[in-house]
Each structure stands twice: as C-alpha cells, then as structure tokens.
C-alpha cells in the first residue's frame, strides 16, 4: 500500500493569548492558553480528496498550517509522505492555496507563476512551458499579462491554484477554496479539484461550505472545537440507511398508483416523500449562466 499523503497523529496545538477564548483551559500571568487543536488524528490517502469540515474557529486552519510547516505542533505529529511537516523536503511535495489569497498585486498572472516556479527551482523553457500549460488549465490565458490587482476573486483563486501546483506536487492543500467565489467560479474550482484527483494528486481541503465539499470529497472529517467529531467516506456519512429513492421520468398517474399499492402491501414500509424533485439554485444558476454564454 502506498504511503499516506498526510498523516496527523494525536495533534495538539495550544496558543498563548492575551484574551480569553472559547477553549481557555488555563489562565496565568502571561495570559490565557487556548487549545486550538486537541488530540487530532486523521490520514489523507494518496490520490484521494479529503475534506476537513467545521465551523469558523474549529481548528481547521491551524491543522492545515501545522501540515504546511508554518506552525509546529505542541504535541503529536504531522507527516507528509512520511516526512515531518517541518522538513523543507516535505514542502516541495505540497502545493498550497490559502483562503482569499493575496498574491503580489503588482505582478501579472504570468509573473506570479514565474515567481513561484523559480522558488521551486524551475527555470528556462521548462518553467515557461509549465506556465502556459497551467494558465490554459485554469482558463486564464487571456489574463496572462494582466496584473493581479485587476483580477476578480474567482480569477485570483484560480491563479492561486495554478501557483500551488506549479512544481507538480503530489499533495495540494486548499483552505476554503470556494469561499466568496460566485457559483460559476466555484464550479470551475471544483472541476479543477476533480481534475487534480484524476491526475493522481492528493487533495486536502478545509471548508465550511458543506454542500460543495460533498461534491468532490472521498473522505470527510468533521472537526468542532479542535476535536474530530466524525470521520468516514462520504457515502458512510451522508447515506440514510433505512431509506431508498427511485426517481421516475414520464411516469403515468396509473403507474404511480400501482407503486403506492405495492408499497402499502408490504408490512412496515411506507412512502416518506413524493412529488416533483427540486433543482438546486446553484444548478439553476449554472444552467442560466451557461445558456447566456452560448447565446452570446
């Protein structure tokens, strides 16, 4: 079995703070201590998309920063492909997109990718080819020479994703990748995540937008007040075991009556819900936006 992309074991992170927080466990002269992450363990398998979900302040970003080596654990450990997360070698395997990224606004899209590419040791033709490939992938070729100050939030998120994968990392870490982005942008980002997965890249993302996570994640962990509350595959977490649904198309009223009769015959079984299925507002928005684009 291949090495896990991320392995977090008994991770605890305690902050010293001047002001008391929700998880204050000790008060001293120097201030209060806040437990941001409490004995957290999970694993992101190679090639899968793992979503860590939870409300704001639940410890998601702290966990992510420990995995990135931006913070060191108070207790426990975090490993990336078997390497300690503080090891610089681990970082060459990681691509990171922070929440609402602010890159150097004075650089163009191309210059931004060049800057991060050079930091990863890429240069010359290989770097230029990779930049062109990525700009095409994130659909920003038209904005190649435009400075980031003129980019929309969705464009920033996409250029952020491109910089994250510039060195072809094996793991991509995304912090709230779709937060604040309009449905079209959000859809593009989710499509890109699926594409990354298809290319065999492991993705570890944090989000509080549950519905969007649901669509792309293989594994989900629910974190609340620094602790892992529930974890499993998406199927395990969201399926209601004693229910089953069949969606019919162009069925006649007679056929529906027949089905109702059949259900009534079975002891203990009942129809919990029936009627016309509803589309989501997002799907409706995407349909309209797509129609407008083709009209144009």
């Amino acid at each position: 079995m291949s090495e896990p992309a991320v392995e977090v074991k008994n991770l605890t992170k305690v902050f010293q703070t001047g002001s008391p927080g929700a998880n204050v466990f000790k008060k001293g002269i120097a201030g209060s201590y806040v437990v941001a992450v409490d004995n957290l363990s999970f694993q992101v398998n190679s090639g899968e998309v793992y979503g860590l979900i939870g409300p704001n302040g639940s410890g998601k970003s702290t966990t992510m920063k420990v995995v990135l080596g931006l913070m060191s654990p108070t207790e426990g450990s975090a490993k990336v492909f078997g390497l300690d997360s503080g090891d610089i070698k681990a970082r060459s395997e990681i691509g990171f997109l922070p929440e609402n990224p602010y890159f150097y606004r004075h650089l163009s899209g191309e210059e931004t990718l060049k800057f991060y590419g050079k930091l990863c040791g890429l240069k010359g033709k290989a770097l230029n080819d990779r930049i062109s490939e990525l700009l095409e992938m994130v659909d920003l070729e038209g904005a190649r020479k435009r400075r980031l100050a003129g980019y929309s939030k969705g464009m920033l998120q996409r250029i952020g994703l491109a910089q994250a994968i510039i060195q072809r990392p094996r793991l991509v870490i995304l912090d709230e990748p779709t937060a604040g982005v309009d449905p079209v942008g959000s859809r593009q980002i989710r499509d890109l995540i699926i594409k990354l997965k298809e290319e065999g890249i492991s993705v570890f993302l944090c989000s509080h937008l549950l519905e969007q996570v649901q669509e792309v994640c293989d594994h989900v962990g629910i974190i609340f007040k620094g602790r892992m509350r529930q974890e499993g595959t998406l199927e395990e977490l969201v399926s209601i075991e004693n229910r089953y649904s069949i969606v019919l198309e162009d069925a006649s009223p007679a056929l529906i009556k027949e089905i109702e009769k059949l259900v009534a015959k079975e002891k203990g079984a009942s129809i919990a819900e029936q009627g016309n299925p509803k589309t989501t507002l997002e799907r409706l928005f995407l349909k309209i936006a797509g129609r407008k684009e083709s009209d144009a």
Binding site: K89, S92, F96, P98, Y102, Y116
Partner: peptide
C-alpha cells in the same frame, strides 16, 4: 498581512 508569506513559505524556501 496579505498572507503572501504563507504561499512563499509553503514552497521549498528556507
């Protein structure tokens, strides 16, 4: 402040 530091330090940069 702009969190640019995160993206730089998450690359293999000492």
């Amino acid at each position: 402040e702009d969190r640019t530091l995160y993206t730089i330090l998450s690359k293999p940069v000492r």
